[in-house]
């Protein structure tokens, strides 16, 4: 039977705590330059965005192109909340995160219900339009600061709060995927007709994956805003959605670990290559292509699958087919 406390979970918890302690120590000991310290939050935000997007793109198998749109509606909702409330930060920030996530989730439901009912790539088109419409609406709304941005947001979030949300996002994604609900989502990806034939409520589970992803994107947006102190609509453009999608594809569809590693690398890469000036974008592209080739090599994939199967089946010798 499954248990919460097992070797795998203990190791995962140790890694989660270890990474946090390591980074905190490196920062306070002055071993991490100011420049790299400033990248910690963007890396964490991108991990949250990638892991959540993977729920829709990797596990559900539906292409969405508006993840930045959900991030922005969440960010504006959460930041407006803290601008107009005077609760203490420890209460205000978590509340803002929940509000931002909830507002993004509501948008997810509104867009998802019509788009996910249709067969075909309607979701990609609709989410693409959503992201762009939201951006132009915000740009033209003076109450939200317009193109100049929403200013004066408390700079109350930093690495710690982002790291906590990151852990929650990863934990929820992992447990969701490994439950009857997560299996229903993956089954829909693999074969909709078969899933219906065994009574899986396809529309509900598509919505569940899509709306969960929107929730975490919105929540990440809230922390993003409270880290920078300002929100500009152009940050959440189509390029941002594509950036996250690239991270997910490179990390491997349906691999949460892959999304995390890929988000770290892709966010760091341009900074690491900064010294190379003119060659930067060239090398950046080459690295992307290299990762893609390595990741999608069918031989490597098959080897990995065999390896995992072997481990899971508890090292019993492979049985011959009867």
């Amino acid at each position: 039977m499954k248990k919460i406390i097992n070797k795998k979970n203990i190791i995962a918890a140790a890694v989660a705590v270890g990474v946090y302690i390591l980074i905190t120590v490196l920062c306070s000991a002055g071993l991490l330059s100011r420049h790299y310290q400033s990248l910690l939050v963007p890396i964490g935000i991108n991990v949250i965005l990638a892991v959540s997007l993977n729920l829709t793109v990797g596990f559900l198998g539906e292409l969405t192109l508006g993840h930045a749109g959900f991030m922005s509606v969440g960010a504006y909702a959460g930041c407006l909340f803290t601008l107009y409330s005077d609760l203490p930060t420890v209460i205000e920030l978590p509340l803002a995160i929940i509000i931002g996530g909830a507002v993004a989730a509501v948008f997810g439901v509104i867009i998802g219900i019509p788009a996910l009912r249709l067969k075909g790539d309607y979701l990609a088109i609709v989410t693409l339009a959503f992201g762009e419409i939201i951006r132009s609406v915000i740009t033209n709304l003076d109450a939200l600061g317009g193109a100049g941005g929403l200013k004066g947001i408390d700079k109350s979030s930093g690495f710690t709060s982002v790291y906590i949300l990151l852990l929650i996002t990863v934990l929820v994604s992992v447990t969701l995927v490994d439950s009857r609900h997560g299996r229903a989502i993956t089954a829909i990806r693999d074969n909709v007709i078969a899933a219906e034939s065994i009574g899986i409520n396809v529309v509900f589970y598509k919505l569940l994956a899509f709306v969960s992803a929107a929730f975490f994107a919105g929540a990440a947006g809230v922390l993003y805003g409270h880290n920078l102190g300002i929100l500009k609509p152009n940050t959440f453009d189509f390029n941002k959605s594509i950036e996250i999608l690239v991270i997910v594809v490179l990390g491997g569809m349906g691999s949460i670990k892959g999304s995390i590693i890929s988000a770290v690398i892709i966010t760091l890469l341009p900074e690491v290559l900064r010294g190379l000036d003119d060659y930067r974008m060239l090398i950046y592209s080459i690295v992307l292509i290299a990762i893609m080739i390595v990741n999608n090599s069918s031989k490597l994939k098959a080897a990995k699958e065999k390896f995992i199967e072997k481990i899971r089946s508890g090292n019993t010798p492979a049985k011959e087919d009867a």
């Binding site: 009857r180 299996r183 229903a184 993956t186 089954a187 693999d190 074969n191 078969a194 899933a195 899971r312």
Partner: peptide
């Protein structure tokens, strides 16, 4: 089948 899922998970769905 749900080709990207294990044999056990196919039945569990």
């Amino acid at each position: 089948l749900f080709s990207g899922m294990t044999v056990l998970d196919n039945v569990k769905v």
